[in-house]
Amino acid sequence: MAREVLLPRTLDDLWEIFHAEPELHLYAGGTDLLVKLRSQPPLPSGSPSPLVCLERIDGLKGIYEEDGLVCIRACTTHSEIMKDPVIRQHFPVLTKVLSLLGSPHIRNMGTIGGNICTASPAGDTLTPLYTLGASVEARSCDSGRLMPLKSFILGPGSVALQQGEILYGIWIKKDHDFNIHHFEKIGQRKALAIAIASMAALIKLSGEGTIEKIRLAWGSVAPTVAVSHTIEDALTGKPLTENVLRDAMPLVTDALSPIDDVRASAGYRRRVATNLLLRLLQYKDA
């Protein structure tokens, strides 16, 4: 049976749709949802619930600076963010991640809000946003609220949006002082790959090579992005050397809880994600 797709142009139109039709599938880009729907068997009878496409709402697009913060509105595409000079200047880790996300076609379709709300353990934008300490803003027709991204993502495919609420934007502080922005993704191929494991790292490295501050996040190795203050604390104040990193590796292994799937085994994911820490050595003399 044919499915209805609604294409609101303004947030007011959207709130009206919400009011009239509470059972909706929201999407922004559709690169995950449309694939998922295609693989579902057709319903034996009746019409499936309508889809609401958010990506044509102007108020949900664009990148803005405000009081030392950058706001990426939810329906900004990966390509737009990747090309944005403000993002490139302040959050190069995000630019790097996006250059490895999917393919040019997927980056042109997919949006950052969609990637977050899909809440896949392999969602590429999540690890850099965790390391950057991003917050998200949810809005409904009469209110808005801010919360850390970490609290917004509840588990695989699950986010803290309430009925009538949408993800409005992502807020990131501009004034961090990390001088190393690192991201690596292990996939089954170099493009159009879903991560088997990934790691984002932000480091403030002193002139003498001491790790003054570090943020680490791993993707695809736990139900949500894996972070660990224990590891970050263990590395802080230490010189960036192979021994220091190797000493921290058992802590990483403990922090991960990967699964087996068609792409890789849990054991491989755990060991490789741990090994990715050693890649930080390339910045030793940078």
Binding site: S39, S103, Q188, R189, K190, A191, L192, V262, R263
Partner: peptide
């Protein structure tokens, strides 16, 4: 088979 489509059956891209 679990490799029933182009997302799970991995053919090389130009990058590979």
């Amino acid at each position: 088979t679990d490799t029933n489509n182009l997302a799970t059956y991995i053919i090389p891209t130009a990058m590979d």
